[in-house]
Computed example of a mutant assay.
Amino acid sequence: MRESLFIKKNLSRWKQYQEEPTDDPDEMAERFVSVLDDLSYAKTFYSFSKVTRYINGLAAGIYQRIYQHRKEDVGRFQLFFRYELPLLFRKYHRLLLFTLCFFLLFCIIGAFSSAHDETFVRGVLGDEYVNMTERNIANNDPFGVYKGGNPLLMFLWIAKNNIQVSFLCFVGGIFLGVGTLYLLIRNGVMLGVFQYIFFSHGLGIKSILVIWIHGTLEISSIVIAGCAGIMLGNSLLFPGTRPRLDSLRKGAKDGIKIMVTLMPILTVAAFLEGFVTRYTEMPLLLSILILLVSLTFILGYFIFYPIYLHRKGYSLSTTGKVIIPFTRSKQQP
């Protein structure tokens, strides 16, 4: 179709949309779809024409009107945790999977090395800690280390240490990701060695039921912080079409959002370690319940919920704003 004929055929409708705006959601949706069809056709056959720019502006106007009249049912705080953060994780799910696999690899390496070299355990955890753990096992109190000290002081110290380790995992990404990978290796090996001690004494299941009461949130947070650190390193190494400094700023901004979210999770993990894990003989069902709640939260919020939002059509714009899919409202009787 010739451009003049295309304009003549649709001009009256375009002017109507422009001069007679509507507040009816269904009508706005129909107009928006219609204008998008026109825009698609114009871009295909008249890419550099003024009419293409005109239709694009018309579509943008209808789009803004749709979201201007859309009721905002959540505040900024809710918007961040309900949509923005989960969608951010959806964007980096592959990187999170890589971080998890990398961490687990060195957990396995730590356990394997411990099984084939007795000195490796002491080299990683230190003689003092290993001797104390072996004394506790001999005294039928293998997890006695969690019972000592004032619970409040223990909680505060652990919270500080957990936050510090996670923060270093993130900041280490500025060194092209090397610092983050080093800390993931170190913590992964330590975890593998630590678990091996109890499995080698036939206390593997018991250690999971006790240690992972707090360990589920704590270790998950370290892995997530590692993902944030690698994001930071990738933004510097692979800026794509952005200037390197802008890419670094974007990576740092996304990483900081993740780190802010980890603070309360690490605090809860420290609370569990300081006040709950010390009850090593708690009922089995209670221990399993705490483990399942922690694991369900981690998998639900960071894995499955982001996938759900993505499939529903929610997404993030290039500026990090949440794009909420438009749904037509039902006609009122």
Rank of each mutant, 00 (worst) to 15 (best):
G57L: 13
R90H: 15
R65P: 00
G57S: 11
Y63P: 02
R82E: 09
P86C: 10
H93T: 14
Q78C: 10
E72Q: 00
R53N: 04
I55Q: 12
I55G: 14
K71N: 00
H93W: 14
R94A: 15
T52Q: 10
Y92T: 07
L95A: 09
Y67E: 04
L87Q: 12
R76Q: 12
T99E: 10
I55F: 08
L79Q: 15
F89P: 03
I62A: 02
Q78M: 13
Y83A: 02
V51F: 13
F98H: 07
N56H: 15
N56Q: 15
L88P: 00
A60S: 01
H69Y: 11
L85E: 05
L79A: 10
T52S: 08
F98E: 06
I62V: 04
V74S: 01
F98D: 03
R53D: 06
T52M: 04
G57P: 01
I66N: 03
L79R: 14
L88H: 02
L58T: 12
D73G: 00
D73C: 00
G75R: 03
A59R: 08
I62N: 05
Y67G: 07
R70D: 03
F98A: 07
G75L: 04
Y83L: 14
H93P: 02
T52G: 03
L85Y: 12
K91I: 05
G75F: 07
G61V: 02
Y83F: 11
I66G: 02
A60L: 01
Y54C: 02
F81G: 07
F80T: 14
G61H: 04
D73K: 03
K50G: 15
K71H: 00
D73R: 05
L58F: 08
Y63G: 02
G61A: 05
I55K: 11
D73L: 05
Y92S: 05
G61R: 08
I66P: 05
L88S: 06
V51H: 15
L95H: 05
V74W: 01
R82C: 03
R82M: 11
G57I: 05
L95D: 10
R82Q: 12
F81C: 07
G61S: 13
G57A: 09
H69M: 14
P86H: 10
F81P: 11
H69W: 09
R65M: 06
E84K: 11
V51W: 14
R53W: 06
K91T: 09
G57F: 07
T99R: 08
L79G: 13
H93S: 10
R70G: 01
T99Q: 08
K71L: 01
K71Q: 00
L95G: 08
Q64W: 09
